[in-house]
């Protein structure tokens, strides 16, 4: 059923709980969440705003510590440190890029602190800048570029890092619709071209179905897994044709039902087993 499921797990989340303290006591933002992402897979997490999606990303990236449960990356448990080989593309591209560095310096910055030769670093940055179509803008500064181009720089920086797992936290939430479509196709291309494993967070149901191999639907307050579903659409996908397909429309409707009419999830679907042998 799922070709990716037979591949090794890049990310495995088991019984994850995240709670934070407020004046009114402890609030659970994430409740007993379990899922896995396999090598080469493109997995989207979709859920209403405030469903702890960003919190989940920060935990996986090692920026926040889980209250309970385990997160394993390439089999290694997170131990309060930033995991190796994970890159994160933030929604807020303008703050995530360093304005005192040129586009090229921004892309090379994470590499220059690893044991990589000068030539290798230059080659990697050229390769990833050309993948996002920004080779001609290497000597510009981020603030000289439009929002969409800035997010491309952030994507190029993540690609040059050659992550085993690429996390994208609502990366296209702050760009206009046309740019968004362009960037979606760019990320889909990059996923195909580099075989990057991607975990993509969005609140846009269409986007999650259009981009991914598998969609995870989360509930809000606290975040629970409502649905874990393969996307039965072939690649490459097309912004117009794919969105007209029966499978696309049906899956979108199913997810919309879960998110927009909470409480009906039990009849709609039950969370599926995510372990590799389970399906």
């Amino acid at each position: 059923m799922n070709a990716a499921a037979s591949k090794p797990q890049v990310l495995s989340v088991q019984d994850l709980v995240y709670a934070y303290r407020t004046a009114d006591g402890e609030i659970e933002a994430i409740s007993d969440l379990s899922f896995a992402v396999h090598e080469g897979e493109f997995v989207s997490i979709v859920g209403p705003s405030g469903s702890g999606k960003t919190t989940l990303m920060k935990i996986v990236a090692g920026l926040l510590q889980a209250t309970k449960g385990s997160v394993r990356i390439l089999g290694k448990p997170l131990t309060g440190r930033v995991p190796d080989g994970v890159a994160l593309v933030f929604q807020d591209y303008s703050r995530s890029l360093f304005p005192w560095m040129t586009v090229q310096r921004n892309v090379e910055f994470p590499l220059s602190h690893r044991r990589a030769s000068r030539a290798d670093v230059a080659q990697r940055s050229r390769e990833s800048l050309s993948a996002v179509g920004l080779v001609d803008f290497a000597t510009r500064y981020p603030w000289e570029l439009s929002g969409g181009m800035q997010q491309r720089v952030a994507i190029a920086r993540a690609l040059a890092f050659r992550p085993r797992l690429l996390l994208m936290d609502e990366p296209f939430a702050s760009v206009d619709a046309q740019t968004r479509a362009d960037l979606e196709d760019l990320v889909a291309d990059v996923h195909q071209q580099f075989g990057t494993t991607i975990l993509f967070v969005t609140h846009d149901i269409d986007e999650s179905v259009y981009l991914s191999d598998r969609v995870l639907v989360l509930s809000a307050h606290p975040a629970r897994l409502l649905l874990d579903r393969e996307v039965p659409l072939s690649r490459p996908r097309d912004q117009v044709a794919t969105r007209e397909l029966h499978d696309f429309v049906r899956l979108r409707a199913e997810i919309a039902g879960l998110i927009l009419r909470p409480g009906t999830e039990k009849t709609a679907s039950s969370p599926q087993d995510t372990s590799p042998g389970g399906r």
Binding site: K58, A61, G62, L63, V82, D84, V86, A87, L88, F90, D92, R95, S96, F98, F109, P110, H113, R114, F161
Partner: peptide
């Protein structure tokens, strides 16, 4: 976000 970016990239 700038600090987090640096942290994520080790």
């Amino acid at each position: 976000v700038q600090l987090d970016t640096a942290t994520v990239y080790g």
